[in-house]
């Protein structure tokens, strides 16, 4: 990660800190005002993991868009967590008006966090590079346009969504979970299930992995950041047992893992990073990326590596 990116990540951690502190205070208030019991303890742990852990984890990604949303989410969670304890402390608050107020405040807090995240790191664009001579290539005519697209399904991600669904159902049936917890888990179920179906796309701008149903970007590798591409058999030992769906664990390893092993498109990115997507016919995809890099380099007259 470059110095500029590291500095931006640090600044964004600071931007999220007040929100995180407010959220921790909210969780403590939730504990202080609630009734003790195993169900409520589980709910609070779940809340803490989701609301505090997820944004902090996303801040480590090094991706400007993900970090910006993470700071916004940390601030929104800081408001949402006060929903229940504040209502308990001041029961005279009218229900519907209180709900509207909290949701509006959470939306405003998200916007505030998003803005507080500040400008993205200014990394100078890497010079256009040609992939090595022996890299796979899918021949492209000078003005030819193309779209390569494949749908992938991550069964382990779908299984996680199913487990979360069962947890939410148990919370609801036992009466232990508050409405907020069930709503948060429901959002987690939906988000996870949607990210299990992805469409991998290669075009003149790079490689994009999007939700197959909504088209929302899960992860992408802009061509400006790609040095070369190849197709290979995935080595499962490189990943943790739970590394499925969009890969966000490490700033140096990005992409989307749908299967434990098998054919994968692997991109070498700038700043020593790697982008991995498990997808069939990866050789064609890799060939297109390399051919597009050649075309760009020809426009800039760069010799092969």
């Amino acid at each position: 990660m470059s110095t500029s990116t590291t500095r931006t990540t640090r600044r964004r951690l600071l931007a999220a800190a007040p929100g995180t502190a407010l959220a921790v205070a909210g969780i403590l208030a939730l504990v202080a005002t609630g009734t003790p019991g195993r169900g409520s303890a589980l709910a609070i742990v779940l809340l803490g993991l989701l609301g505090l852990g997820l944004p902090l984890w996303q801040l480590r990604s090094g991706r400007p868009d993900v970090q910006r949303r993470a700071v916004g989410s940390a601030w929104a969670f800081a408001v949402l967590i006060w929903w229940v304890p504040a209502a308990r402390l001041a029961p005279q608050l009218p229900g519907a008006a209180w709900t509207v107020l909290v949701l509006s405040a959470a939306a405003a807090a998200y916007l505030l966090g998003y803005l507080l995240a500040g400008p993205d790191a200014s990394n100078p664009p890497a010079p256009a590079a040609r992939p090595p001579h022996d890299a796979v290539r899918t021949p492209l005519a000078p003005g030819e346009r193309y779209l390569w697209s494949r749908t992938v399904l991550s069964r382990p991600t779908l299984a996680v969504a199913a487990l979360l669904l069962v947890a939410a159902a148990l919370q609801l049936l036992s009466g232990a979970g508050s409405g907020v917890v069930v709503a948060l888990v429901a959002v987690a179920v939906l988000t996870t299930a949607l990210s299990a179906f992805a469409r991998v796309r290669v075009d003149g701008d790079g490689v994009h992995v999007r939700q197959a149903l909504l088209g929302r970007t899960l992860t992408d590798a802009p061509l400006d950041e790609v040095r070369s591409a190849r197709a290979e058999q995935l080595d499962p030992d490189r990943f943790r047992w739970n590394d499925y769906g969009p890969l966000r664990r490490s700033p140096g390893l990005l992409g989307y893992r749908a299967r434990r092993s098998g054919e994968a498109l692997v991109l070498d990115l700038t700043r020593g990073r790697e982008f991995v997507v498990t997808v069939a016919d990866a050789a064609t995809a890799a060939g297109l990326v390399n051919a597009e890099l050649d075309r760009r380099a020809e426009r800039g007259a760069v010799p092969p590596c």
Partner: peptide, 9 residues
């Protein structure tokens, strides 16, 4: 699935 077009064709 690879879809390609050449506008000069």
């Amino acid at each position: 699935m690879l879809i390609r077009v050449d506008p000069s064709s």
